[in-house]
């Protein structure tokens, strides 16, 4: 089998200890996905697996054999940025940029979850359709930290693009 990364089939690592994050960065040289904490606490390593957001630092690459991975490098169409990428520039959704790839992949996954009606900790009604208010987006994006404190711009960019 193979792992499909941004549409290209690649071999899984021979050593099962290699994380998906290290496989992307060190073997495939896709360094857009960032390593912040390497222990699940920051969200910088967020990628999409079959459209769902996960943390690649807590994923053994071999576990994702046969799955379809999208990283930040897979979002733009040629020179045309993904609408969220453009919105992050528009709204100053970053300073150093280290958390940005994780933020953007996470937001794409979040939009799909909201569309499917997945509730959140702040949803007053567990049953209804999801409206992505500012409070909802803040809670749903809480797994992505930004040490530069660009959160307000990040939330603005997300609200404008996917809410």
């Amino acid at each position: 089998m193979s792992i499909v990364v941004n549409g290209l089939a690649v071999d899984p690592p021979g050593d099962p200890r290699v994380s998906l994050l290290d496989h992307l960065r060190e073997t495939l040289h896709l360094t857009g996905t960032k390593k912040g904490c390497n222990q699940g606490a920051c969200g910088a390593c967020t990628v999409l697996v079959d459209g769902e957001r996960i943390l690649s630092c807590l994923a053994l690459a071999v576990q994702y054999d046969g799955r379809d991975i999208t990283t930040i490098e897979g979002l733009a169409e040629g020179d045309a940025l993904h609408p969220l990428q453009a919105a992050f520039i528009e709204h100053d959704g970053f300073q150093c940029g280290y958390c940005t790839p994780g933020q953007i992949c996470s937001a794409i996954g979040m939009a799909a979850e909201a569309k499917r009606g997945v509730p959140s900790h702040v949803s007053a009604d567990l049953g209804g359709a999801v409206t992505l208010t500012r409070a909802e987006v803040q809670e749903r994006m809480s797994g992505n930290l930004c040490r530069c404190g660009a959160h307000n711009g990040i939330i603005d960019a997300i609200l404008e693009t996917v809410a």
């Binding site: 969200g43 769902e52 996960i54 996954g109 809480s142 797994g143 992505n144």
Partner: peptide, 12 residues
């Protein structure tokens, strides 16, 4: 469940 961890972790 929704009070625990983050969305990424809950997906895994």
């Amino acid at each position: 469940i929704l009070a625990g961890a983050s969305a990424q972790i809950r997906n895994m």
